[in-house]
Amino acid sequence: MPDSSLFAENLLDARDRQLLEQVQLGLPICSRPYSAIGDNIDMPEAEVIERLTRLKQQGLIKRMGVIVKHQQLGYRANAMIVWNVPDDLIKQLGGHISRFSFVTLCYQRPRQPEWPYNLYCMIHGKDKVTVLAQLDQLNNACGLLNFEREILFSRRCFKQRGALYQSKPWALAHG
């Protein structure tokens, strides 16, 4: 696990956690949503806003806003693409891949026996043909053509939720 996780744990106090649990469930659609959130955990509106502002500045909130459902909006093809790239090039390649607007995630993960890949990206597209064309574009522009790779389209979704672990419903970008 990255060291930053321990560091981040220390930046959060118990009230931050309570607040994140609440706001994670979704901001109510009403005139004073932060006041409504605060009412649930006995926290004044001003403190809710102040804490959320700090959490965002600290990077513990990556972004705050409308979370769209790709599938429902016509983005029905979801592909995970994996490459086996040299470790010393991975930061540079990951940075380059992330700049394409159709890329929705880009991660490094460890290689494993029977699984030689270390660089991952996710593309949400309207259909498979579009996604494959976008992948061609990516492979050409980033110089990825010579690396071993696979594309894994998603089929059935068995479970997806923002609410996660026990009473701590964190919406992670993607574990």
């Binding site: 994140l20 994670q24 972004r63 701590k168 992670l172 970008a173």
Partner: peptide, 16 residues
């Protein structure tokens, strides 16, 4: 069902 919610995205491995 066009949006899942309005709220924060938390980076992985920062909490838990």
């Amino acid at each position: 069902n066009f949006i899942s919610r309005i709220g924060p995205i938390i980076p992985p491995n920062h909490i838990g």
